[in-house]
Design a protein around this nucleic acid. Structure first.
Length: 430
RNA sequence: GCGGCAGUAGCUCAACGGCGGAGCAUCGGAUUGUGGUUCCGAGGGUUGCGGGUUCAAGUCCCGUCUGCCGCCCCA
């Protein structure tokens, strides 16, 4: 029989990595709530058209990276490749624009893109997504930067860079697009193949090219940033001013562009050199036209997404907390009978009690208890039962004494010893 | 989608084209019922999968799947 394994780019997430996921979620929930974000769960499957209209039909994501298929009713469906499209759909469908003046929502969950996997890039990956609808003022742009900063501080991540830029409004972009194409047409012979393709599709992305010669060309090229309209320029200046007020360090990168069509004005990207090729782990920006383009009222929007797998790679390994569990080692049938009474009491009283299901030698049981890093072992054999006692061994202190064989006494003693043993339990965030 | 490297025990890796191994981990033992260190022992493999070359293939060739690195793209 051939073993069945996960699909390419799909993985089981467990153990240490899952622990990091949980820490990230916990830190995120703490701060998102503090900033006034409501959590929402969105469908994974949506009509393909949702993504085509929002992300853009010429983007790589939509052109070749979506898991798309026909359902039995003949509709074209797609697994969501990102969250913003669904957030906008939900905002409109639930009529939030009519019931509140401003909406802050967030979600967390799996996204799907049919890309070639490599480290930090999977076909099913997870994003934390944050969106604000109905605020055009740059104060909210800065607030999102502050949220990112507090989240990373909470997770004790220090080595990263926040790069920001403005890609202008529709008008800046339209007029600049022509200037840019005219410029690159004169230097066409110096551009790489990819960039020639970009020139047709999305000339702004030529600024992203890593080819030295292309970088040389763009060094001479006019920049969108320098031809922003007054409004966009003021918006960006205010944004920077507010960020400075929050005391967060950012770098303006006039070459920073985004791959999705809907971005306007503020865009940002948080990168780390500890990640390898896929080094952006948080990115986002403003999309002031998207809601209207999706059939809603003219509504400003801004948001960002966190790549959970990439962020998890930056986290230090979580420290284990040994010694917080107890083990029952029994010898003989009488001890085994007593286990059922004691086990139920312990589990009810909140004491994690471990034991071996099979009858094993005491030595083997002790080894098992040690392996499980149990702080205390209860030893019960015929000798103890005849005396009406039970032995309690402290595994770290290597000392042991006998208690009366009485469930109340045992439970109370264990509670006392465990809380004295592991003060970390009470200082740890729940 | 393109280019390159790799795949051997649960994990990390050895093995000139010639009997598939080690360390770690797991399990058991070291005189009566006491863990970690030490010593002894055991189990564990269709060498990713499928073809081909050869007297003989983990090893060479082709295909395929998967992972990794880079490109592309993006979080």
């Amino acid at each position: 029989m051939e073993k069945i394994r996960t699909l390419r780019g799909f993985r089981d997430i467990f153990g240490e990595e899952l622990g990091k996921f949980k820490r990230i979620e916990q830190a995120f929930r703490k701060y998102s709530a503090r900033f006034g974000f409501r959590e929402i769960e969105l469908p994974i499957l949506e009509k393909t058209e949702l993504f085509v209209r929002s992300i853009g039909d010429t983007t790589d994501i939509v052109e070749k990276e979506m898991f798309t298929f026909m359902d039995a009713g003949g509709d074209s469906l797609s697994m969501r490749p990102e969250a913003t499209a669904g957030m906008v759909r939900s905002y409109l469908q639930e009529g939030l624009y009519a019931t509140e003046r401003m909406t802050k929502v967030c979600t967390i969950g799996p996204m799907f893109r049919h890309e070639r996997p490599q480290k930090g890039r999977y076909r099913q990956f997870h994003q934390i997504d944050v969106e604000v609808f109905g605020v055009k003022e740059p104060l909210v742009d800065a607030e999102l930067i502050l949220l990112v900063r507090m989240l990373l501080d909470e997770l004790e991540i220090r080595r990263y860079r926040i790069e920001v830029n403005s890609v202008g409004c529709k008008m800046c972009r339209e007029s600049f697009r022509r200037i840019l194409i005219d410029f690159f047409e004169t230097r066409k012979d110096e551009l790489c193949g990819d960039c020639l393709r970009r020139l047709e599709k999305n000339p702004l992305r030529i600024f992203d090219c890593k080819n030295q010669q292309c970088i040389g060309v763009t060094a001479d090229s006019p920049l969108l940033f320098d031809s922003l309209c007054e409004e966009c320029k003021d918006h960006f200046d205010l944004f920077r001013q507010y960020v400075a007020g929050f005391g967060v360090d950012i770098e303006v990168n006039k070459r920073l562009v985004r791959g999705l069509d809907y971005y306007t004005k503020t865009v940002f990207e948080i990168t780390s050199d500890d990640l390898g090729a896929q080094k952006a782990f948080i990115a986002g920006g403003r999309y002031d036209n998207l809601v209207e383009e999706m059939g809603g009222p003219a509504t400003a929007g801004i948001g960002f997404a966190v790549g959970v797998e990439r962020l998890a790679m930056l986290l230090p390994p979580g420290e284990a907390e040994p010694g917080t569990e107890c083990f029952f080692a029994g010898i003989g049938d009488r001890a085994r009978d007593y286990l059922t009474t004691l086990l139920k009491r312990c589990l009810t009283e909140g004491i994690p009690l471990r034991y071996a299901y099979e009858a094993k030698s005491l030595k083997a049981q002790m080894r098992y208890a040690d392996n499980l890093k149990c702080g205390f072992v209860l030893i019960l054999g015929d000798d103890e039962i005849d005396r009406g006692t039970i032995t309690l061994r402290d595994m770290t202190g290597k000392s042991q004494d006998e208690l009366p064989l009485d469930a109340d006494t045992i439970v109370n003693t264990l509670k006392k010893r465990l809380s004295g043993q592991a003060p970390a339990l009470s200082t740890r965030d729940g």
